[in-house]
Design a protein around this nucleic acid. Structure first.
Length: 482
DNA sequence: TTTTGAGTTGTTCGA
DNA sequence: GTCGAACAACTCAAA
C-alpha cells in the first residue's frame, strides 16, 4: 500500500496536514513534485520564483533524505504524471495541499475525478491559510470587501490548532519510480543574474525557521514603526517562505503569540499586533481572489474598465530598470531586480508612480512584479496592485498620489536606502539625495553627478504627473459622465 | 428597507 | 514649522 504525497506550494514537512496524514498511517509514502508550468493558466511561475523553487526543492529533498525518504521529481502535466506514478507504484491514495485559488481549485477537482476512476482515493488539506477563504462571510452572507471587518471576523473565529511536528521517519516504498534530476527541470536562469538573490536569501524550510526566529528576536516589538523603514531591517522578510509554503501561517501566528506570552505582559504589543494584521492581509488577499477570480486580469471596480491608460514602452522600461530619475523609486526597482524583493513601503511608492505619475495600466506593473519577485503570489500581487490603482477592495482614493520625494525624505531620511541601490548618487549630500535635479550645479559637480548622463533626468515632473493623474481619474468618476 | 458610520499606509494648501 | 482641512463620492457592513 503506497500513498503518494504530492508537494506543490507547500515545500515543508513541519505543520503540514498532508505530510502528517501520509506518514501517520505507516504505509509507504512516495513524495513527489511535478513541475508543470502549463497547468498554471495565465500565470506560470516567474523567473525569480523558479530560482527560489529550485533551491526549495533541493532543501526539501535533503529533509526527506534525513528521514529515510526522498523527493521524486517529474516534468509534465500534473494529472498525467500523477496517473503514471500511481501505476508505477500501485498507489491507492494521494494526499496533497488544497489549492485555494480559482484556477487551482478547478484543476484539483478534475484531477480528483480522474484518479477516483482508477480507484485512487484523494485527500486534500488546507495547509496555506489560517482560515478557509469561503468560511468568512458578512452577516448578509457575502464575502468581505473591506479589510477591517474581515480582520475582526477572522480574529473572532480563529481557532489555532496545535501545530503538527514533522514526522521523524517517512516509510519508503519498496521500489522508487524514475525521477528527474533537479537540474533537468531547468528552473535556474540560463545566465547568472541570480547571484544578488542568492546573497540575500536562504530558500527552504530551515531558512524560513531561521528567518522567523531572527525576526521575533530582533524586530517584532518595534515592527509597527520599523516596518516603515526600507533603510532598516524592520520587516520579517517571510513573504517568499510563505509563498512556497516553507512555513505555515499557523506556525508563524502561534510563534508570535507565544513570544508575546513569554514577555509576561497582558495583551499583544503594538508591534506584534501590527504584524498579525499583515498576516491577516495575506488571508484577505486569498479570500478576495477566491471570491473574485477574475481580478488578476480585471479591476474589481467595473468603472475602471474604461480608464484611459497611457501606453508608453519607454516609460514602462524606465520604471522597470530603475531609471525614472526619482532616486527613491529607482532604488526600489533596482532592489527588486537585484534581490527579487522590495520593501513593502517602497512597493507602494513605485506602484503609485507607475499607475499615477506614468498612467500606465496596473496590470503591466503586476506582470513585472510577477516575474521578478521571489514572493510573487497571485492573491497578494492582485490585491496590492488593485489597491494602489484605486480599482480594488478598500482601495486608495484617487487623490492619494504618493510624492516620491516626500516619501523618500520620510522613510529614508538619510538616503541610506537610495545610496545602497543607486550608487551613482552616493556622494550627494542628504539634502539633495531624493531630488538631485534641484541641487545646485556645484553640488552635483562635487558629487560627480551629471544629469542625463550618470543619472537619468526625471521621466515626468512630479507636479505635472500629479495634475495629469487627477485629470485622468476625474474622467471615470460620477458614473463615467464626462 | 433604510440609515448610519466608516474606510491601511497621502499630499497640498493656507492659516 | 506645524496643524487642520480639503481633496469626492462611493461602497461596504451592520444595525
Amino acid at each position: 500500500m503506497t500513498t503518494i504525497l504530492w508537494f506543490r506550494s507547500d515545500l515543508r514537512l513541519d505543520d503540514h496536514r498532508a505530510v502528517h496524514s501520509a506518514a501517520a498511517r505507516g504505509d509507504a509514502v512516495l513524495p513527489v513534485y511535478v513541475w508543470s508550468p502549463e497547468d498554471e493558466g495565465r500565470w506560470p511561475m516567474g523567473a525569480a520564483g523558479r530560482w527560489w523553487l529550485h533551491h526549495s526543492l533541493e532543501s526539501l529533498d535533503e529533509s526527506l533524505r534525513a528521514r529515510g525518504s526522498r523527493l521524486v521529481l517529474r516534468r509534465g502535466r500534473a494529472a498525467d504524471e500523477l496517473m503514471r506514478i500511481a501505476e508505477e507504484c500501485d498507489a491507492v491514495r494521494l494526499v496533497c495541499s488544497r489549492r485555494l485559488d480559482p484556477h487551482g481549485a478547478k484543476s484539483d477537482a478534475a484531477l480528483k475525478r480522474l484518479l477516483a476512476q482508477r480507484g485512487i482515493e484523494v485527500e486534500c488539506f488546507n495547509t496555506s491559510l489560517l482560515h478557509e477563504p469561503s468560511a468568512l462571510r458578512t452577516k448578509s452572507g457575502r464575502p468581505y470587501q473591506v479589510f477591517t471587518p474581515f480582520w475582526r471576523a477572522l480574529e473572532a473565529s480563529l481557532d489555532l490548532g496545535k501545530p503538527l511536528s514533522a514526522p521523524r521517519r517517512i516509510a519508503a516504498p519498496k521500489r522508487w519510480p524514475p525521477s528527474m534530476r533537479l537540474a533537468d527541470l531547468a528552473l535556474l536562469p540560463k545566465f547568472g543574474w541570480a547571484g544578488g538573490i542568492a546573497n540575500v536569501w536562504s530558500p527552504g524550510e530551515r531558512g524560513a525557521g531561521r528567518r522567523l526566529e531572527a525576526f521575533l528576536h530582533r524586530a517584532l516589538g518595534g515592527y509597527d514603526i520599523a516596518r516603515d523603514r526600507p533603510d532598516e531591517e524592520g520587516s520579517s522578510r517571510l513573504s517568499p517562505h510563505l509563498r512556497f509554503g516553507e512555513i505555515s501561517p499557523q506556525r508563524v501566528y502561534r510563534a508570535v503569540i507565544d513570544r508575546e506570552a513569554a514577555r509576561g505582559r497582558n495583551g499583544l504589543s503594538r508591534g506584534a499586533y501590527a504584524f498579525l494584521r499583515e498576516l491577516a492581509w495575506r488571508e484577505f488577499a486569498h479570500h478576495l481572489l477566491h471570491h473574485f477570480p477574475h481580478t488578476p486580469e480585471k479591476p474589481l471596480r467595473t468603472n475602471f474598465a474604461r480608464f484611459p491608460w497611457r501606453r508608453s514602452g519607454s516609460d514602462l522600461c524606465a520604471w522597470q530598470r530603475g531609471r525614472t530619475g526619482y532616486p527613491y523609486v529607482d532604488a526600489g526597482m533596482r532592489q527588486l531586480w537585484a534581490t527579487g524583493w522590495m520593501h513593502n513601503r517602497v512597493r507602494m511608492a513605485v506602484a503609485s508612480f507607475l499607475v499615477k505619475h506614468l498612467l500606465i495600466d496596473w496590470r503591466r506593473g503586476a506582470e513585472w512584479f510577477w516575474d521578478t519577485l521571489v514572493d510573487a503570489d497571485l492573491a497578494n500581487n492582485t490585491l496590492g496592485w488593485q489597491w494602489c490603482a484605486g480599482c480594488g477592495a478598500d482601495a486608495a482614493p484617487y487623490f492619494r498620489i504618493f510624492n516620491p520625494i516626500a516619501q523618500g525624505r520620510k522613510f529614508d531620511p538619510h538616503g541610506a536606502y537610495v545610496r545602497q541601490w543607486v550608487p551613482e548618487l552616493t556622494d550627494l549630500p542628504d539634502r539633495w539625495i531624493h531630488e538631485p535635479w534641484a541641487a545646485p550645479p556645484e553640488v552635483l559637480d562635487a558629487a560627480g553627478v551629471v544629469p542625463g548622463q550618470t543619472y537619468p533626468r526625471r521621466v515626468v515632473e512630479h507636479l505635472r504627473g500629479r495634475e495629469r493623474a487627477l485629470a485622468a481619474f476625474a474622467r471615470i468618476r460620477n458614473g463615467g459622465r464626462e
